[in-house]
Amino acid sequence: MNVVFENLSRSYGSVRALDGIDITIGPGITGLLGPNGAGKTTMLRILATLLPPTSGTARLDGWSTSHDRERVEIRRRLGYLPQDLGLYPRFTVFEFVDYLAMLKELHDPRQRHRRVREALEAVDLQDVAGRKIRTLSGGIRRRVGIAQAIVADPQLLLLDEPTGGLDPEQRVRFRQLVGRLGEHRTVLLSTHLVEDVSAICTSVVVLWHGRVLFQGAPAELRKRAEGLVWSAQEASSDAVASWRTDNGKLRVIGARPGPSATPVEPTLEDGYLLVTSGSPIR
């Protein structure tokens, strides 16, 4: 599925959460990176057809989210994990995912139950299928949310901070799952974790104050920091960022902090920090 934003803006009162977004996102796994309040959730909510844009349009395979009938077509192909996940505490895990599968028009009970079971196995929840949701921990609830998002085999998967609250083992498992899903679908996931992006995303969009600062492959984002990352004893005052690493030295992003500084290989995080710093360097 192709996602196209055409000069899309969204305001809440005087706050401009998205400001003139003009990008196209193709199949594969795209990571939405950005600080708190950058507009990631707003963007995903607009694509999930929950929130109308203030101006401009969002199209998915040509269907506009602002058009009543086309919106239903989008919803038929959509899997969505919201950031604030509300579940029914009285339901069992299986019952909840089954309920969402029903609403996603899987009406044949046997086939649907099998799909629910498969979705639960995909997130390793088959053993708690019969547990009431109110008895589950936060990370497990998150996985229930992921299971309901994938149960109807969506073409477009929108995941708002899917790895929040997952333990390291489950994060790895989640990456494998999304990697598999992203082979034939469009997956858009928002995250604060740059590692998530470097581990699975084929492309990355950096949002900052409602604007797109970068769109491209993760390797390209990393390249932005090439020649601008240093290992040094001291940081210069105009450094974009600096922090002490486990070898006792400072890792400095920005202009060469001093003659004794040695250049180091940039990471994706360096590229991200540089792009979002609004720094005049480059």
Partner: peptide
Amino acid sequence: ADPAYEIVAATPLS
């Protein structure tokens, strides 16, 4: 009033 309204509203239910 539905705790799962965000997920439910993103389904094709009219």
